[in-house]
Every structure is written in structure tokens, then in C-alpha cells.
Computed example of a mutant assay.
Amino acid sequence: MEKLTIHSLVARAVLVPLDPPLTTASGVVAAAPLVLIDLKTEEGVTGCAYVFCYSPVVMGPIAETLRNIGDLVKGAAVAPQDLDRLLRARFRLLGVQGLVGMAMAGFDMAAWDALAKAAGLPLVSLLGGTVCAVPVYDSHSMLAADQAAAAAAESHAKGFGAIKVKIGHPGIAEDLAVIRATRDAAGPDMAIMVDYNQSLSVPEAMARARILDDEGLAWIEEPTIAEDFAGHAKIADAARTAVQLGENWWGLPDMQKAIAAGASDLAMIDVMKIGGVTGWMKAAALAEGAGLPVSSHLWPEVSAHLLAVTPGAHLLEYLDLAAPVLQQPAQVQGGKVVIRDEPGSGVAWDEAAVSRYAAD
């Protein structure tokens, strides 16, 4: 593998419409605000990645932060561990959560993509694994019972073995109606998970979890505020059903706090919030030590490679917000995402679509 030297970093903002919009108990996302990253090297290899900004308001600041990072590392070797240490030292007084952490993680993902391309290997192979198919679940919005049934039937027809529905309706009766309609449509063999998107108080979450224990769910996700680890520990103690946290862990410190509190029975790692590929590998080791099965949040292209080298890998979330701007989005076959035997992470831009959805 040839040594790579950073030449420049290009960051472009796009606003990708979602059809249908992503509806949760905490709000509606009608379009995906993304910042696309191209890490260009002196050797002509370009590493690609993207970050999901959640709100269009922060697309500009994140893109500008990425460009400033590019200026900081210009001329440096593409060595993700070294670059991570360099940037953490540079941003120590500011901190590496929030927008800075998102930008750093996107940069890290692009760096690993460049290394894999230079080596002529899929990212999974560069990380010591083999090209394979990763079990996946279909991830849906917050729906009424009849809509949830239709979505479950469609997921079943497509070969998914698991489905997640978002709940958090005003009353538990509505939540139960959605879950039971999903079960009736999906059949007895499909695993069903539910996601409250942080919408309940701790006492309400405990009360609902006890009722949901009779529904045969695979997990209950983020029933209360994500950073309330003590509250989640109380909910986990009250419920027989597994509690799932992780998508809002900002790096290893949050993950360590959640584990110490006994806040979650499972781990759902978000490659952006955990610190990119470099952060994921550390988090996977931490999860293994704690005996927590690991699932992914968003980023199905990159996450498939990472789950394939993660001990205790559980399920990949199939919710591909970037698909409209990708040349080859992740594809599900027989309830699994098949990692392509091609160099890199699989992220490459459909430039016509990028131009169509450009936001800056």
C-alpha cells in the first residue's frame, strides 16, 4: 500500500429530500441535511464520507469546520490514529463533542476510505475481516397502526427478518396497537424492536416497559433522555425486555458512563458520534469487555464493514439517508446487507444528484 499524503479537503452541503419524511416522537425530518467529504491526497486517491447534520442550521458550520481541519492537516500522512491524536490535542480546550466531533468523525471515515482504496481492499479487509453479508433490520418512522402493518408486510416481502417501529404516542394503548398490527402483518418469526426517541419521563417509561414486556419485543430503544444514564438504568431494571442505547453516545466517555450505570443491555453505535472508524474500533472493544451485543445506527455502507469486524455484532440498521446521492447505496438481499468486494467503504457520489440537492 502506497503512503498517502493529504493535499486538501472538500466539504459540500446537500439537502436530500426524504420520501416519506422521517417521523419520530421527538420531531419530523423532512430532508436529510448532509455534508459530503472528499479527502484528496497528493497521490491522487480520494477518500469519501458524509456526516448527517440533523438540522440544516448546522450544515454550514460543519462544512467550514471540515475545511479548517483540512488546512490543519495539509501535508500530513493519512494515518487515522495519528490524525485523531493530533486533532484531539488541537481541540482539547474546546472539546470534541458536538459539531467538532461530527466533523472529526467524517474526516476520519474519509481517511480510512482513502487507505482502503490505496490498498485495493474493501474497508472490512483492511480492518482484518472478510467480505460477507451482515444481518439487517428495516427501520421505519412513527406510524399509525394501519400504516405500520403495511410497512411490516412490505419489509417481510423484501426478506427482512427484523423491523423497528417508532412509538411514543400519547397513550400506551396507541403504542400497543402499532406493535400488534406490526406483529400481525410481519408474522411470528420477525423480530420487532421499538424506538421511543427519548420521548418519555423515567416513571412513564418504566410503566410502559412493564406493559410492553408481554409483547415479545427484541428491544426498547431510548425510552427517556439519552444522557440520563441513571434513569435508563432504572428502566432497564424495571423491564424484562432489553433496553437499547448508544446512538447518542458522544465518544467513549459517554459509552463508559452508560456501561458503568448499567443503563443499557445492548449497544447501538453511531459511527459519526462515536468518533468515526477509529472511534468505532475502540467502542467495539469496550462493548466486548462489557458483554454488550453491538448494532449500528445509520451509515449502512460504512457500518456494514465495521459490524463485520465487531465481536458480538448484532444487527445493522437499514435507514439509508444518503442513498439518493450515492452511486451504489447499500443493498439488502435475504435480510442482509452484502458488502461489495470493491476497494474502500462503498461511498461514492452520484455527482448529478449532488448538484441537484446542493445547499451551498
Rank of each mutant, 00 (worst) to 15 (best):
P188Y: 09
L18K: 04
A191S: 14
E351C: 01
A290G: 03
Q147I: 02
P17H: 06
C48G: 04
E247F: 10
V332Y: 09
A118T: 02
A267Q: 07
V10I: 10
G44D: 08
D82F: 11
A233E: 13
D195H: 10
A151Y: 00
A284D: 02
I269P: 07
T130D: 09
A352S: 15
G159M: 15
K164P: 02
M193E: 00
P188C: 09
D254G: 08
D237S: 11
V271Q: 14
A150R: 13
M268D: 11
V194H: 01
V78S: 03
G276V: 00
V100A: 02
D265F: 01
S26E: 11
L126A: 06
T278H: 04
R90D: 07
R90A: 10
A111R: 04
E2P: 14
I211C: 12
G334W: 09
A76W: 15
D82R: 10
G27R: 01
G128M: 02
A119L: 04
E351G: 04
L22T: 07
L9R: 09
G161Y: 06
P203I: 08
D189M: 08
A63K: 06
D195V: 02
M281R: 10
T23Y: 02
A148C: 01
P21Q: 06
A173K: 15
A111N: 07
A144W: 13
